[in-house]
Design a protein around this nucleic acid. Structure first.
Length: 310
DNA sequence: TCAGACCCTCACAG
DNA sequence: ACTGTGAGGGTCT
């Protein structure tokens, strides 16, 4: 005898009616292009004059409108409201950018970096997606990270509803979904030597060992130590997750671009040991150092594209 | 503290 | 067109 009493309801998946809903967020000084394409998140694609991606389990389209940000999501009839709240939180629409920038040191480099990308914001991402994405980021170009993440979502993520005529989209695969994969499965997403790191981390997270939610309530240094226990997660990736997912705005990820920015702009191009740079970043940039880091990162990258002057 | 290894892909020479 | 070469939001040993 088979017990099928609880499994007859359409594969256990409850289906809601999904339909696109739009709204206008009245927000000033929010530049979607520099924010969504600045290497903090890897799932946004420019489509025509807007940006399309997936936040949690929702397809989202965003465009900069005159009076703010125009947003369209696929909303379920019963939970549309919480989806909008999720999106607002993800975009950090309540952050007061002027106030944040006002806490930066009053020096020439950071002024120029802010001027180069006014309206660049920090997102507040899901910890697991952020952690997994940055494990995949080591010694990879941003374009390649996007490709790996896209392959991972396509292969292991749950499909999400999209408006008629749109290409399929997928949620970022959960830790549990990846934990049951083999290393070979993951390597087929072209992540190379990062595969065992991601797999082991997925298993630890799926087993809540530790639970990623528990890090919200820790001091930043303790949370960083927890993150660095995951294989493939060193200081830099831990700082990315602290900043982009947990909202520790003093976290200051130091990567090759930021090293170059600090050396060129603050140390006259001299070679400075990494620990010294980290100490400098902690003391110099203030309580929102992470925002400053993102401006410097974006500044160095876009400056290079416009023509190198060594 | 310091190399070297680690997978793989893309851009760019030649 | 084809092949060679270097480097890319690091981490581990």
């Amino acid at each position: 005898m088979q017990d099928r009493s609880s499994s007859e309801s359409n594969d256990g998946k409850t289906t809601f009616t999904m339909s696109p809903e739009s709204t206008l967020f009245p927000v000033e000084n929010y530049d979607l292009s520099s924010t969504l394409a600045s290497g903090q998140a890897f799932r946004w694609r420019r489509v025509n004059d807007g940006w399309e991606g997936v936040v949690r389990d929702r397809w989202v389209r965003l465009t900069n409108a005159g009076a703010g940000i125009s947003a369209t999501i696929m909303a379920a009839t019963d939970s549309g409201q919480s989806s909008w709240e999720n999106l607002k939180h993800y975009l950090q629409l309540n952050a007061d950018l002027d106030q944040i920038v006002a806490t930066f040191p009053d020096d020439e480099p950071i002024r120029k970096a802010v001027q180069a990308a006014p309206g660049l914001r920090l997102l507040r991402q899901d910890p697991w997606e952020c952690l997994a994405s940055f494990i995949l980021s080591s010694t990879k170009q941003i374009v390649q990270i996007q490709q790996i993440v896209a392959a991972l979502c396509l292969r292991f993520g749950t499909p999400v509803a999209v408006p008629p005529g749109h290409a399929p989209h997928f949620a970022f695969p959960s830790a549990a979904q990846l934990a049951v994969c083999s290393e070979t499965d993951l390597r087929e997403c072209k992540m190379g030597f990062r595969a065992p790191y991601l797999l082991e981390t997925a298993r630890l997270v799926a087993g809540a060992n530790p639970s990623l939610d528990s890090l919200y309530s820790l001091p930043v240094d303790a949370a960083r130590l927890e993150l660095m226990k995951f294989p493939g997660v060193g200081r830099k990736i831990a700082d990315c997750v602290l900043l982009f997912a947990y909202g520790f705005q003093e976290a200051f990820p130091v990567d090759v671009w930021v090293i170059k920015a600090l050396r060129d702009l603050y140390f006259r191009g001299r070679k400075v040991p990494l620990p010294r740079l980290q100490k400098f970043s902690r003391t110099h940039f203030g309580p929102n150092a992470g925002y400053a880091q993102q401006y410097l990162f974006h500044y160095m990258r876009t400056k290079k594209q416009k023509g190198d002057t060594p």
